[in-house]
Simulated assay, not measured.
Amino acid sequence: MSAIGLHRVLAPAGALPQAAERLDTRSELWPDEVRVRVERLNLDAASFRQLTEQAGGDREAVRATVREIIKDRGKMHNPITGSGGMLVGTVEEVGPESPLGLAKGDRIATLVSLTLTPLVVEDGLARWDGASEQVPCDGYAILFGRSIAAKLPPDLPAPLSLAVMDVCGAPALTARVVSTYAKPTVCVLGAAGKSGSLALAAARRAGAGRVIGVVPIERERAALDSAALAHEVVLADARDPVAVAAAVEQAGGPADVTIVCVDAPGCEGGAILATAAGGTVIFFSMATSFSAAALGAEGLAADLTMLIGNGYVPGHADLALDLLRTEPGVRKLFEERLAT
């Protein structure tokens, strides 16, 4: 038995569960495991975008592909983006040696990726229309001894809690980095999305002197202006480096801290150009090419610190939920996103 789930890896031998091609999904528990009756999956934004584009917008094809990935791999691990998502459900059984502090009947959200979580779907995703990142379903999942989960707050609807917890690493790391500067200028690419809006709120709370939101379309700019989370919101395609740098400069940049929350590839160059020498870029998008970021910074002679947002910072779920509760603009954006 392994606290990190090595005993569940079927192939290749020696791989960690996240990197594995296939996981063992048997329902019987090892002593430190927990089995969860799954209620809803939340596909990460980059994965859902890729699946939708690959299917040409055919919702049934998206549903069939997700179903096939889970069946073949024993987990939701998109082979193109390398990403998955997370889930909510109810604890069915707890192994006698589980250190997670969970009890049968607890409603929880997993705070570890579906790319390393053994998962079985038993209803064929019959209640999902393929049009949303959130996937109602019936099945079960297995948590390891070293997994992370949080009990769902009773004051929030489960879909809203799931949407927040899916990206709760972003505001926590944003706050940690921003607090190391004295009133920095902070730029968020993809600022109207889930992680983007939370990052804006976290940056302001952590002492940012100026917060700039970058969005690609007028509708998102209007929504973000209404939410009042940024000092200025500018229009630019995050995949156009020159346009991003120019827009950020006109809004008071370059930024000391740039946070990339865009679910599309090709945003590395714009983030680098928009950031001042000695600044920090945080990549939260699973669509990021880290080789493109490293080589792009080298080619531009950009003296930057570049961080990978790994989704875990101690206390991240509590911080994100607090921002949702106390920042009306954040909650408004999340609820509008869920509604559409």
Rank of each mutant, 00 (worst) to 15 (best):
A158T: 13
R204Y: 13
A170P: 06
G213S: 10
P154A: 15
R210T: 12
A247T: 05
V214C: 07
A201H: 09
A238P: 10
G213M: 11
G213A: 08
A236S: 00
C168E: 05
E218D: 10
G196K: 00
A149G: 02
V164S: 10
A191T: 11
V215W: 03
A228L: 03
S195Q: 07
P153D: 13
A192T: 00
T180I: 04
V164D: 02
T174C: 11
I217M: 14
L156M: 14
S147P: 11
S226H: 13
A192E: 07
Q250E: 06
A175E: 13
P159S: 14
L156E: 10
V211H: 01
A192W: 08
P171T: 00
L173E: 08
P157E: 15
L162E: 08
L160Y: 10
V242H: 07
V211C: 04
D155M: 11
V215N: 02
V242Y: 00
G196R: 05
V177C: 01
I217T: 15
L229T: 07
G209C: 05
A230G: 02
A199T: 04
E249F: 02
A150W: 07
L160E: 15
T174Y: 04
K183H: 13
A208M: 01
L189K: 07
H231I: 12
S179H: 10
V178I: 12
A182I: 12
G213F: 01
A158D: 10
A222N: 14
L156A: 09
M165T: 06
A175N: 09
I212A: 09
L224F: 06
V248D: 02
H231A: 06
A150V: 14
L200G: 02
V242N: 04
R205V: 00
A238V: 01
L224R: 06
D166A: 15
L173R: 14
P241C: 09
R204D: 13
L229S: 01
M165E: 07
V244C: 04
P171K: 00
G193H: 04
D237A: 00
A208Y: 06
L189W: 07
L156H: 08
S179N: 14
A175D: 03
A149I: 06
L229P: 03
A243C: 04
L235C: 11
A208P: 05
D166I: 08
